[in-house]
Nucleic acid binder design. Structure first.
Lengths: 154, 154
DNA sequence: CTGCAAGTTGAAGTAAACTTGAGGTCAAGC
DNA sequence: GCTTGACCTCAAGTTTACTTCAACTTGCAG
């Protein structure tokens, strides 16, 4: 315990809930930065806690670390980001969240329609055809998704 | 083109939107089955199309292939599944979808509260503390999620 | 000064869901 | 009968977001 304004990696890990290894990883991909002690140990500014919080939350919203890095790149470098700065970034999540929710609701409603008939038939059933490309939800393949529906016979 | 009731892997790929390599993969993990021609090529029953449709849709809902395999295992083996069979499985997704939507809405609402203040401060802000473990949404780490919040000072 | 928890590095492993590649076979039209 | 596109297998590669391991070094309490 100290009065030192800088935090050790263990302290940041403890407070952010991100493991030390995760913090090192974040640093390796350019999401956060640190200074070093003479003995080569990392020391973090307090503002890093907020930055990590942003990263975790953005991640929960579904952004990839790449996208998060891009977002963070818009923060001013010459000064510690203000609440306004963070607020601006967070606001950008809103449409994304709305889209995700809408997509799931669409899926749910279509499912309701289909449950009655137990169809799930390709091409004939709405469920099988994404409908919009805002998919990219949950794990699974993002590669070919809604490419060619092709003809229908089953 | 033929009158053959069995489909080649290419046909199934074309109609289902899942690449041939994906279908082989599904087979390798026991999600679908096929018979073979004398020349060792796969031939699929038409019902496979429905099965694949189920897999893709369940996947979109966020189920892992493991879970999907478990669900499919409850289908009768001795006969081609009826609409009722599929309907039963689909109905089981509903609570899951509802939970996913609720989780996202919770996140959005909390975000709305937080946007005004640009807080995102750890522990002090609801956004940083998951609240329920129904997370498992979108990509990213499912490992440590909401483990120890720890104390708060920033 | 000593001991030991905490920190360091780089490489390798993990998980899910597939894709790609190499090397070889099959089937159908001409 | 031959060419060509579709298929086969098996191993290895891909992506994202980390964790784990081994082998070592620091830093602080006693």
């Amino acid at each position: 315990m100290s009065t030192d304004p800088l935090l050790t990696i263990g302290e940041v890990a403890e407070r952010s809930g991100v493991a030390s290894s995760g913090l090192r990883y974040y640093e390796s991909v350019g999401l956060i930065a640190s200074t070093r002690t003479t003995g080569n140990q990392r020391r973090y500014a307090r503002s890093t806690l907020r930055r990590v919080a942003f990263i975790r939350t953005a991640s929960r919203v579904g952004l990839t670390l790449d996208e998060i890095r891009d977002a963070l790149a818009t923060l001013p470098e010459e000064r510690t980001p203000t609440k306004k700065d963070w607020s601006r970034l967070s606001r950008a999540w809103r449409p994304r969240l709305d889209a995700q929710i809408a997509e799931l609701e669409r899926l749910r409603d279509t499912l309701d329609e289909c449950i009655g008939c137990g169809c799930l038939s390709l091409n004939r059933c709405k469920l099988s055809n994404p409908g919009d490309r805002a998919a990219k939800l949950g794990p699974g393949p993002r590669f070919l998704e809604g490419d060619r529906p092709a003809d229908a016979t089953d």
